[in-house]
């Protein structure tokens, strides 16, 4: 394609005018952005509250002298939650630092790094959920082996197991989406 051909394409391109596009709705976009910020803050706050609640429950059960399997299970959930929360929060913090640096405006490498952080969080969620599921299954089998489980218990455990599997599938799907976007940016 020579310069003349490209000039024709430039003319053709610049002739195009917006037709159906409404004018920019800045006020609405500003509100949307504020909502998203609130949502992110609430999400982090919710995770922290749940963790504090589980930790409190574990401590109060220990003080009340609950059975060892129950204490082990609650201890695992508490430890699992805090480790995951700290690692994910650290990754989020690194992403936020990258966004705040302002270098995003000219660095595709930085966008790629953000995607890699995001992929790391999704992959970690898959691994953590898998670990949780394994421990949950072991705990369930122990519970039902040592004392008989009713049909209601089995239904409850099966539903919980299915939810965990679905969560893993969702995390994996998100990680794949990030990987696809990463590949596109690196083309």
């Amino acid at each position: 394609m020579d310069n003349q051909d490209f000039s024709k394409l430039t003319e053709l391109w610049q002739e195009a005018k917006p037709s159906k596009q409404p004018a920019p709705q800045l006020a609405q976009l500003q509100k949307k952005q504020q909502r998203q910020r609130w949502f992110m803050l609430m999400n982090a706050g919710f995770e922290l509250v749940v963790l504090l609640f589980v930790s409190y429950f574990w401590i109060s059960e220990s003080a009340a002298g609950a059975a060892l399997p129950e204490l082990l299970w609650l201890g695992f959930v508490t430890l699992w939650g805090w480790v995951l929360f700290v690692v994910i929060s650290f990754s989020r913090w690194r992403s936020l630092q990258a966004i705040k640096s302002g270098a995003l405006s000219h660095s595709i490498t930085l966008h790629t790094k953000l995607l890699q952080q995001s992929m790391f969080r999704w992959r970690l969620s898959v691994a953590a959920t898998a670990l949780f599921t394994v421990v949950f299954v072991v705990f369930t089998l122990y519970q039902c082996g040592s004392e008989s489980c009713s049909v209601t218990h089995w239904v409850r455990y099966t539903v919980a197991f299915a939810v965990l599997l679905l969560a893993m599938l969702y995390f994996e799907w998100r990680a794949r989406g990030d990987r696809r976007a990463c590949q596109e940016l690196m083309e």
Binding site: A16, K17, P18, S19, K20, Q21, L104, S105, H106, I108, H111, L114, L115, R174, G177, D178, R180, A181, E184, L185
Partner: peptide, 28 residues
Amino acid sequence: RVIHNVAVDHIRRATRRHETALESEVLD
């Protein structure tokens, strides 16, 4: 710079892009 940065950001966040249709009648 801002315009193209937003576009790159859009690609980074869009995970369903490959399912989108090719028909576009945006320009008049």
